[in-house]
Design a protein around this nucleic acid. Structure first.
Lengths: 142, 142
DNA sequence: CCGCTCTGTTTCATACGTGAAACAGTGTAC
DNA sequence: GTACACTGTTTCACGTATGAAACAGAGCGG
């Protein structure tokens, strides 16, 4: 009998991800409610990790987060350990953006912390990047 | 306001997949119930497509089927987007490793600089990561 | 025939997730 | 001041998914 007690839905992570994303965008609960079709009350409960959202709402919210559902519904055994399938190589000058995106996606960080870290990283990276050979014009976008 | 009415869970496909898999293996509903932790009655309902299973049961059953949850919960597929092709979701605590790997892959940095940056990042990240939150145990029974 | 064991299905009471609406702060304007 | 508009949270009635148990067959051995 496969462990009937344990909840396979990571409500805490989902809640944190939503709150982070929402605050980053400067949206209210009711704004997100309008966008996703999930009521503000339910959103509040999910962000605070009380109870467990039903499948429809999980689908709506992960879609809104542009996040894979597996991230939240961990029925599968995800070969724990350094899953380097997550490591991808990328256009080199986009590094700060990539890091920033990753930081934003990291629900262990508050939005403020994520922003601070990405700023720190951006500065440090640009400081140290290509001190001598940045003759090649292609640089950070935006 | 995203379609509030439409169900985002493909119960029919899930039910069919389960029944096919189960009959292929020559298992009874109660066998699968024992393996997955989903009761036989619920399994019967799901196989016949009546009602909508909750998130936990979907997780359990897709795991048993070794089927990606996206197959059944079609909130939306990650297709377009702002060049997040390089941005992937990753194991939560592996963030510093990811960044380090990226830095190492960056040809604009000397190995020394890459190492220094990754060290800096690692320290800063661990410093700010996960301030107080821990997994709040929410299993009342067992 | 009866009894037994298996099957899938269907009650049934319970638990709980849900959205609307009420609530409690917090600004901000007048 | 006191209105007003916003915020997040909580209350509430309701719908519904759930598992245990009851049910209805089917197949088989005595």
């Amino acid at each position: 009998m496969a462990d009937q007690s344990k909840s396979l839905v990571n409500t805490v992570e989902l809640g944190r991800a939503i709150r982070r994303n929402r605050e980053e965008m400067g949206l209210s609960l009711r704004d997100v409610a309008d966008e996703t079709g999930v009521s503000a009350s339910t959103l509040s409960r999910i962000e605070n990790g009380t109870g467990k959202p039903d499948a429809d709402n999980i689908a709506r919210l992960t879609a809104w987060l542009d996040m894979p559902v597996e991230r939240v519904m961990s029925g599968r055994k995800t070969e724990e350990g350094t899953d380097n399938s997550a490591v991808v190589y990328f256009p080199h000058e986009a590094m700060p953006d990539i890091v920033e995106a990753h930081l934003r996606a990291d629900r262990n960080l508050t939005p403020e912390t994520a922003k601070a870290l990405s700023e720190l990283f951006r500065v440090a990276y640009q400081q140290f990047s290509a001190p001598g050979q940045d003759a090649r014009g292609r640089n950070k976008r935006k």
